[in-house]
Amino acid sequence: MDTVDTMGTAVRVSLVEDELMLRRMLEQLLHSRPGVALVHSVGGFQEARLVMTPGSTDVAIVDVQLGDGDGVALGARLQRADPDVGVLLLSCHDAMPAFLLAQETATKPWSYLSKRSSFAITTLTRAIAAAAAGEQVVDPYLVERSSARSDTQVSRLSPAQFRVLALVSQGRTNDWIAGELGIAVRSVENHLLAVYRILGLDSDGHNRRVLATLAFLQQTSRYPAT
């Protein structure tokens, strides 16, 4: 899934990043993508507040730490004004607690990438598509270094189940996961059902992938014991 454009119309993206060099590089990347229309590119909280009027943006890419304010507060504010806005949070460090706090009031699941990953065009595109569609992509580096906290539901997953959940958290489809792990799609589905059961996600809601991802992030640590 390399392109964002699913309905024939381009996804309107706004970028809020205070580091000028990073912003220019991301602008270039976004301009090079078919199916993405960069409608606003601004350097801070206040500018974004003024420029990004409700209805003008499908996905807001927001740096978590802006020179003049907090990116998470900005994302929440944008969604309050327009519940259909998707938010993709960018951070040059692990801002997982801020991301998880934001999910408590999000009208649509957010996605989260480290800046390093955001320069990988395929990852960036995937995250934009997910944010627009109400799905969730979480940074592969952060997910890959996560280990289960003791005495949690996630700690009761088998290694295979843990692996599948980690890939789901990165926003991968079942087909892709099957290919990556060299197993049948059916097996991926079975692993996932077991994961949902262990995490207590019994209802068949379509956001179970998102709920499972949040549980994964809440119940894992990205800081090995020293």
């Binding site: 907090d70 607690p97 801020a98 998880l100 706090l101 289960a148 906290r149 003791s150 005495d151 800081y223």
Partner: peptide, 23 residues
């Protein structure tokens, strides 16, 4: 970290950094 935003976020960050063996 994050104390410039809120106490809650800063404390959550502290808890997030506890080793995996500590809840």
């Amino acid at each position: 970290t994050a104390v410039d935003v809120s106490v809650v976020r800063a404390v959550r960050t502290l808890l997030d950094r506890l080793p995996p063996s500590v809840a």
